[in-house]
Each structure stands twice: as C-alpha cells, then as structure tokens.
C-alpha cells in the first residue's frame, strides 16, 4: 500500500511538473447528451477541438453519463491539476460551484448557468436576441399572417425564447398573430415528439404557416408535422436546417462552441477573466442559420432586412424585451 502511494505520489509530482512546461490542460465535462448529440454538447466539443488544433492545448473530454457523475468528473479534473475545467449545461451549475469552492486555484468555465465565484467564468446566452431575429424572419416570410411558437417545458428559459420571438414578430408587423403552446410542465416535455407533433398540427390548422420550436427532442415531432403538411418551421440551439430540407426556414443558433473556444483562447493568452458574461448577437454567440439547406426558402430580401435588424440590436437601437428582466422586476416588487 505504502509503495503504491509512493509511486503514485512520484507520478503525480511528475505530472504536475510536466504541466508547467507543457501546454495548458483543459478538462471538458459534457452532460448525458454526449459529444454527438448534434446540439448543445456537440457544439461544446467542437469549440474545444478547434481550440486544441489552434493552440495545441492538452484536451481531455468526459461525458457524465448521469447527473450523479457530474461532480466526480469535475473534481477529478481539478484534483489532477487541470488549468481550466469546463462544465456544459444548466444541470452542472451546482456541482461546479461545489468543486470550484474546493479548488480555488483552478479556473472554471460554466455554460448556461451562473456560478458567482472568483475562479469561475459563467457564460449565459442572450436567447431573447436570437429569438427576436427568427421572429422577424417568420413575420417577414409568413403569408397567412399567423405564426406559432412551441416551447418544451414551461420554464423561464423557454419563456425568454417566447417573449423575444413574439417581440421580433411584432417589430415587423404588429398584426401578425402568434399562437403559443408548451408541451408540458415536467421534464418529459423535452422528449415527447408525439405531443410536439400534435401541437404543431393544431397550430398549422389554426392557419399558422411558420412555427418556432424550442422543445428539445419533442420538436422532432413538430418537424414531422411541417413536412407532412408542407409548412415551415424554425429550429433551435444548433443548426437544424438539414433535418427536413425545404421545410426548415432557419435555426436560432446558440454558439456554445464560440463560448468554449473563447474561454480556452483567453486562458492560453493569459487573459482569462472570471465573472458573468452574457453573450449575444454582438459577440456572435446567438445568430440565425443560413446554409445550402435553407438558401432557397429564405429570400435575400428577408436576409438583408434581418441583418439590418441584427445591427440595430447590436447598436442598441432596438431594445429586445428580456423575460428575465420581467422576472427580476417582479421579484423586486414582491420584496418591496
């Protein structure tokens, strides 16, 4: 036993010393979606891989197969002297906060959650800005003057999408009607494609011709409805234009890859800052997707107008309503 720990100790010293001379070590913990979820985690993996190629960092990626595995994974990286430990997704927030407290000298990045510690950089996205843009696209494209919104679980994050989208639609044309549905109020709402399809069918029957689906896997059912009825739909989080080519008008992008890449970049350049960062259109962290799959249905006129609006938001000429602000002011009123 003694010998083993001695050897271990020597190895550990060896490794930590090696790290000083070697490129920085980055540990990335994905949640259960894994690196091929074609969405959130895949984007994080992509950002980290790009940073690896560009800066030659020492990158190690683990997937926390269930929520209970998140904390040990983060702690293992921190204990082994990784310079930057990255947690992806709202669910990792609490675990990362705990581990970051235990290892105050290690620096952390958490995406989509807020951890207020001096060694943690929290990156949040301005989803409402991206939603505003796709709302504008929907209003510019609709022929029936009715558009829809399908949310997954009814939580503040998704309300933020809805309010931004609605504002985007009304910015173009206040007369366009927005129909809103939520799949449910439990986490089953993210994985219920049958319900996602029924909601989409009912909205299309109510004359909507474009929907925005922010509903995780449930949205795949909504995509099926769009395909069957020959209508259009807007994807969410990652670029989903390829799923049903010709029916996906655009996708609202959340550039998790940019967030991860930039954090690693700043770490290699020695400019890493902790604190809360809200990344939006200005930082290129939320956007709308345009590629070969939707080039033929998103007209150049609409594209030009959308880019114009994008610049106006960046310049502060358009103020996009944020559901979180509404919540905050509501909370203040209650306290007062």
């Amino acid at each position: 036993m003694g010998v083993v720990s001695l050897v271990f100790g020597i190895l550990l010293t060896f490794f930590t010393q090696g790290a000083l001379a070697k490129p920085i070590k980055v540990g990335l913990v994905l949640d259960k979606g894994g690196r091929d979820d074609k969405s959130f985690n895949a984007a994080a993996f992509k950002g980290a891989t790009e940073a690896k190629e560009k800066y030659g960092i020492d990158l190690k990626v683990v997937t926390a197969s269930d929520d209970a595995a998140i904390e040990p994974s983060l702690r293992t990286f921190a204990r082994r002297g990784y310079d930057l430990v990255i947690g992806i997704g709202f669910v990792q927030g609490n675990a990362l906060e705990k581990v970051a407290r235990e290892f105050p000298k290690t620096q952390f990045l958490i995406v989509d959650a807020k951890v207020a510690l001096p060694n943690v950089r929290s990156v949040l996205f301005n989803e409402h800005e991206g939603s505003f843009l796709v709302g504008a696209i929907a209003a510019l494209t609709t022929k029936t003057k009715v558009v829809g919104f399908i949310g997954g679980m009814d939580i503040p994050l998704i309300r933020r999408f809805e309010i931004g989208y609605r504002a985007g639609v009304q910015h173009i044309n206040p007369k366009v009607q927005v129909i809103t549905n939520y799949v449910g109020s439990t986490s089953d709402a993210w994985k219920n494609p049958m319900k996602g399809k029924e909601l989409a069918l009912s909205q299309y029957k109510k004359k909507a011709d474009i929907l925005f689906a922010a509903a995780g896997a449930s949205a795949l059912g909504s995509f099926d409805a769009a395909e069957e009825l020959g209508k259009q739909i807007i994807g969410c989080d990652s670029n989903q234009n390829w799923i049903k080519p010709g029916h996906v008008l655009t996708s609202m992008l959340k550039r998790v890859d940019v967030a991860v890449f930039n954090a690693i970049k700043s770490k290699t350049e020695g400019t890493f800052e902790a604190g809360e960062f809200d990344l939006g259109l200005k930082e290129g962290a939320v956007d709308f997707a345009l590629d070969t799959f939707n080039r033929s249905i998103l007209t150049p006129a609409v594209e030009a107008r959308t880019n114009e609006i994008k610049n106006q938001i960046i310049d502060g000429k358009i103020k996009v309503p944020d559901y979180y602000d509404t919540l905050r002011s509501g909370a203040k009123k209650k306290n007062a």
Binding site: D188, K191, N192, P193, M194, K195, G196, K197, A217, L220, G221, D224, E227
Partner: peptide, 12 residues
C-alpha cells in the same frame, strides 16, 4: 405518428 425513435419517447 412521427418519423424517428427518440430517447424515452414514450414519455410515461
């Protein structure tokens, strides 16, 4: 009804 299997799609 839909066109693919998604994880836990029975949803209870």
């Amino acid at each position: 009804h839909t066109s693919q299997f998604t994880r836990d799609m029975t949803a209870g």
